[in-house]
Computed example of a mutant assay.
Amino acid sequence: MAPAATCTAPVAPTGELAPWSSPSALNAAGDAAGLRAANLPVAQAARVTLLSTPEVKYPLRPEKPGGSVSYGGLVGVEIAQAGTYRVALSSGAWIDLVKQGKAATSVAHGHGPDCTGVRKMVDFALTPGRYTLQLGANGDAQITVLVARLP
């Protein structure tokens, strides 16, 4: 494994990750009823404020929900076109994309480009519809998130 790059200054990501550099503010929902106010459009980054894990009622129990000192939350994502979508995160939080009670299966995992602030990327092959992005086991109350369609 290659050593991590030494960053002297942040680097703006390009391509489908370009929106990462200008996140909007978003409060995560604590349950399914709160998802109406916690929507993340595709191709728009958000700095998401999470809840203490015990306050979150996940629609589908995450494989790694986190403990009482971690943070999590729910964010709604509307997928209009079938394709491969990348979820980029600023931390190593656990994620699930849930639709109609079932978690989507990831097709790839990776790290973001060096010095961009993107720590983790997970790709999913998605069909159109409404998904719940479950965020769990995060060590901080905030996380930057971007859902982007891959070319």
Rank of each mutant, 00 (worst) to 15 (best):
P3T: 04
P3C: 00
A4Q: 11
A4G: 06
T6E: 12
T6G: 00
T6Y: 06
C7D: 08
T8E: 13
T8R: 12
A9Y: 04
P10T: 08
P10M: 09
P10V: 08
V11P: 07
V11A: 08
V11D: 01
A12M: 02
P13L: 08
G15N: 10
G15A: 09
L17G: 05
L17V: 05
L17W: 07
A18I: 01
A18C: 03
P19H: 06
S21H: 09
S22N: 14
A25G: 07
A25Q: 15
A25K: 14
L26N: 07
L26G: 09
N27I: 13
A29S: 13
D31L: 03
D31R: 07
D31M: 03
A32D: 15
A33P: 07
G34N: 07
G34A: 11
L35F: 13
L35K: 10
L35Q: 07
L35G: 08
N39L: 11
L40N: 03
L40D: 10
V42A: 04
A43T: 15
A43W: 01
Q44P: 03
Q44I: 00
A46W: 14
A46D: 14
A46L: 14
R47Y: 08
R47G: 04
L50H: 05
L51D: 00
T53Q: 13
T53N: 02
T53F: 02
P54A: 04
E55C: 00
Y58T: 02
Y58C: 06
P59K: 01
L60A: 10
E63L: 11
P65T: 07
P65F: 01
P65Q: 03
S68E: 06
S68M: 04
S70L: 05
G72R: 05
G72E: 09
L74E: 00
G76Q: 14
V77T: 06
V77W: 06
E78M: 10
E78G: 01
I79P: 07
A80G: 11
A80E: 13
A80F: 08
Q81N: 12
G83H: 00
T84F: 02
T84D: 13
T84A: 08
Y85S: 07
Y85K: 06
Y85W: 02
R86V: 10
V87F: 06
G92K: 13
W94D: 12
D96F: 03
L97V: 04
K99R: 15
K99E: 01
G101Q: 14
A103T: 15
A103Q: 05
A104S: 15
A104W: 06
T105V: 12
T105F: 00
S106W: 04
S106F: 09
A108L: 02
G110E: 06
H111Y: 06
G112L: 14
G112M: 11
P113I: 05
D114T: 05
D114G: 05
C115Y: 01
C115F: 00
C115G: 04
G117S: 12
G117Q: 11
G117F: 12
V118E: 01
R119P: 02
M121L: 08
D123A: 11
F124Y: 15
A125S: 12
A125G: 00
T127M: 12
Y131L: 10
L133W: 11
Q134G: 04
L135A: 06
L135C: 05
G136Q: 11
A141V: 03
Q142P: 00
Q142D: 14
T144Y: 03
V145D: 13
L146S: 03
L146K: 07
V147C: 12
V147G: 09
V147E: 03
A148C: 09
A148Y: 11
R149I: 05
R149H: 13
L150P: 01
